[in-house]
Amino acid sequence: MSVTQEQPAAAAPQTDDLSWERVCLLSDLFPERGSAALLGDTQVALFRLPDDVVVATQQLDPFSGANVMSRGIVGTRAGVPTVAAPVYKQVYSLVTGECLDTAGYSPRPGREPRLVKYPVEVRDGVVHVAVQ
């Protein structure tokens, strides 16, 4: 497992003006599955990995346009933690947000084949996510 909490997220917002939001308890999240969270108007997918690392990405699936990323299957590809989109099964790295396998599809017009990642911290069993 090569992911750590501190790892800078690829497309994450600037770290200076982070506003952290308390989202839920770690125990509210299901091990090795995703859950959706609503932060203001922003929908976020939270994934609880086997070692209780939590990763947050956009909930929007770039290939279907639906807000469903949290419902994909969590796994690994060559040791890298991944999520597979539940609609058309693209596979994304949860470390970088990059799409590792487009499954032969193209993203919806105007969308990039990658997931925006948001900074996450688990403090005293409470999950905090920073969105802008």
């Binding site: 086997p50 299957i73 969590v74 690994t76 060559a78 596979v91």
Partner: peptide
């Protein structure tokens, strides 16, 4: 790798 990983959307 030190283990078999945690599966994927195919084998799970």
């Amino acid at each position: 790798a030190d283990g078999p990983g945690r599966g994927c959307d195919i084998c799970k």
